[in-house]
Design a protein around this nucleic acid. Structure first.
Lengths: 208, 208
DNA sequence: TTTAACTTGTGAATTCGTTCACAAGCCGGG
DNA sequence: CCCGGCTTGTGAACGAATTCACAAGTTAAA
């Protein structure tokens, strides 16, 4: 890949793909950058610029072919293959994720959940086996998951992350409300609800 | 408030507060911008700039008083008062949120959850009453919640949001993986897991 | 074939956020 | 009381992301 693409750009591509799939299911053939922009809360210039990093997919005067652009976006985002996911922490959030149909829909296959609690080990979490966290390293060697989702308490998050990194997993989705340190070749995305809530609190407090 | 503060700045303030609380509990008196920066994965100049938007809280040569800065940040973020929250959608994610202790800890009081499913109405979700969604408008007039958390399917999210906005609620935390349209005076924050996952997929696919 | 109405792709201009760099201020030790 | 070591607060420089603006290409209709 020639240029480094900003995180915000990738997020928008992801949003565009969602609208395209909606358009696709309604049988529409073409879409303009303006239509795409309105649905995504951005501008048509932004849409065109975002896409231009990866090539030129549109036809001047006409717009973009919906199926073609959707296909190209899936390719760019790496959604062509199946990604194997493990969930670490079989609590309430882990359970909510385990049943989330968005995973499977987009090609993310959840292999297993891990926990230290003996009462949970051996059971199923929304159909997904809960395994003993002590087996993590052995299982990873065998199953080769691509992504680990962390739903453990904040206090344990860094320790668990270090362990996960050591197994060679390069992508982590963290739900613990804490900043994590990881090597540069490991991508960590954090979903921090506490932060979002405080953002709302700030907005409510500082109105014009 | 004189200047418009960037979203990214508010998120960092929220992160700083978390470290400060950690420092506070360990009985430390002062902290430098450098220490704060290291924990938050940013730079000391960034920390100082962020804080400078709101005044000057530090002592040159010494750093910041931990309790004082924590207090000022809570004030800035509007965490001094108790915010009343309702959850709309009593599914798995709603349940996970209902039991999330981070809410209460930071002064967010969950009043109730709402659902259309008769089997859920009247029961409790992690100790929180599940009410009939048809009563939403009446309840809001009475209870005056500040924040609504949306954990409904993507297809219904916009419709539910419109209804919530009409009741006068000005802050919404959305968990549906969809872009929502709201009036300018309503703040909507979306936690979009699908987007984060696709960000990981992109990162795994486009390595150097 | 010509024209009018559209829409893309992209350099240039602009805006916004981050980093640099340093004067100003504080503290402790001699 | 003065000096050396530290750390803040903040303009200025920089860099990144967004928006502007327009040439170039497409289509449809006359």
């Amino acid at each position: 890949m020639a240029k480094r693409i900003a995180d915000s750009t990738v997020r928008r591509l992801s949003a565009y793909l969602r609208f395209l799939e909606d358009f696709e299911s309604r049988g529409l053939e073409t879409i303009s950058s303006e239509e795409l922009a309105q649905r995504g809360g951005t501008t048509s210039a932004q849409v065109r610029k975002d896409l231009s990093f990866f090539g030129s997919f549109g036809k001047r005067g006409l717009g973009y072919s919906v199926p073609e652009l959707a296909g190209r976006l899936r390719e760019i985002l790496g959604l062509g293959k199946e990604w194997k996911v493990i969930i670490i922490g079989a609590g309430k959030i882990g359970a909510a994720l385990a049943q989330y149909r968005g995973f499977r829909q987009r090609g993310f296959l959840i292999l297993a959940a891990y926990d230290a609690n003996e009462e949970k080990i051996g059971r199923k979490l929304e159909g997904i086996p809960v395994r003993d966290i002590t087996q993590l390293e052995r299982d990873v060697r065998q199953d080769r998951p691509d992504i680990a989702v962390l739903t453990v308490p904040a206090e344990e998050a860094q320790r668990v992350l270090d362990r996960v990194v050591k197994t060679g997993i390069k992508a982590i989705l963290n739900f613990a409300p804490t900043q994590l340190q990881a090597p540069a070749d490991v991508t960590v995305k954090t979903v921090n609800m506490a932060m979002e809530l405080e953002g709302l609190s700030y907005a409510l407090t500082n109105r014009d």
